[in-house]
Design a protein around this nucleic acid. Structure first.
Lengths: 217, 217
DNA sequence: TAGATTGTTAATCGATTAACAATC
DNA sequence: TAGATTGTTAATCGATTAACAATC
């Protein structure tokens, strides 16, 4: 199968499930796994699993199931895990530093190659093995390391300006932790990671549950 | 309208959009806003906005639109922003400490009332205004502050055990930063915040984009 | 071979969009 | 009033599920 065939468009929901299958497979010891096994563990339908895998043109063996290792390889390829992608972080506050210190990214072929801030107090401080650099240095680092992803960990007032700066410097994708809808040109990938928003979901579900309980009486 | 009417079931996608409308309204200065204004800013259909708002039984004024302040009030109520919810954090690593230090949660009616770790080196250290406590203290803190939400910031190997511990101690919702599917009883709310997974999405989209470009030639 | 499991087409379901009457 | 915008019913679209033939 050619790469082009494999990466034709398929639903976002399927892409998200493929990530979950991938995680499940990394925790699977057996040599083969059936669509039913996968479905049961995730609480979904086996047909859906098969459909999702058909999108990436991966073939299982009737009567046997899917070969865990080769499917995992295929999914790792799909998510570009085999090649290293260089990433910078803008904002050396608590969150930016926490991300810079996180050891788990290497598993996903992600390497943090720089952290930046405009606060003179933070500049030159060590964060793990990196040193906080001023924003002027973004250009140099991006070119030197061929950085594709920029992470925004600055306060929301500053986020749009930093996004513009990143785009100017040739960043192709933005991982945005600020609670703002960034306006960038269409060809830039933006993924929002607005963690406070999930707290809203939790609070709503707690409220709803409480009302349900009250209603039962 | 009674609370019960308002909180009848509606699609998850609508709930997520309602959160986005809420954020947009906080950034809106005018007194009224039309479904078309909202839709344009978010790149969706005005009909969808009206449909979503009809789920929460919120009425606009024909020819005028929606009253920004009162809609915002309604949404704040929907997401339980007006009352304070107490939260604890388990795991005082970089991420746990970053969350404990984050000032923005108060806006959402969230208060961090405790941070815990099993590492003797971390216990008794200060994190902002809190002191890291051993896991044994979870029970006391949960009861004392009537804690509803527990945040898991421990390594993935430990996550399930901590989830069990939280549930034993009466926690009603888990905000899970570990890359693991937690097994908990049905009445416990679990919201996953697996940030590494979004990197997979970014890497995939980057790959796809590159293939598209290659294909154009 | 018989049976189990895949792969795929058709049917169903649910969410989004279109249409339009109601209303200020 | 006329016109703009809401609220809601009906039509469409897309994703999920069901059914079943293909295959090892």
């Amino acid at each position: 199968m050619s790469k082009d065939e494999r990466t034709l468009y398929f639903p976002k929901a399927s892409l998200d499930r493929l990530k979950i299958y991938r995680r499940l497979l990394t925790e699977t010891d057996s040599e083969y796994i059936s669509s039913e096994d996968i479905a049961n563990k995730l609480g979904i339908n086996p047909e859906l699993v098969r459909k999702d895998l058909s999108y990436i043109n991966y073939k299982g063996k009737p009567k046997v199931g899917y070969h865990v290792q080769s499917l995992l390889d295929e999914l790792n390829e799909l998510f570009g895990l085999k090649k290293t992608t260089n990433v910078i972080i803008v904002g050396a506050g608590h969150l930016g530093r926490a991300l810079a210190n996180f050891k788990g990214f290497s598993k996903y072929g992600i390497k943090i190659v720089g952290i930046f801030d405009n606060d003179p107090q933070k500049i030159n401080q060590f964060v793990g093995e990196l040193v906080v650099l001023p924003l002027d240095y973004i250009n140099r680092v991006v070119r030197r390391f061929n950085v594709e992803i920029g992470t925004i960990c600055v306060p929301e007032e500053a986020a749009q300006k930093i996004a513009d700066l990143l785009v100017q410097n040739g960043i192709k994708a933005i991982w945005n932790f600020a609670p703002v809808k960034l306006e960038v040109s269409e060809d830039i990938i933006v993924v929002d990671e607005d963690i406070s928003q999930s707290l809203l979901t939790i609070k709503h579900l707690l409220e709803r549950k409480q009302l349900e309980k009250a209603g039962e009486k």
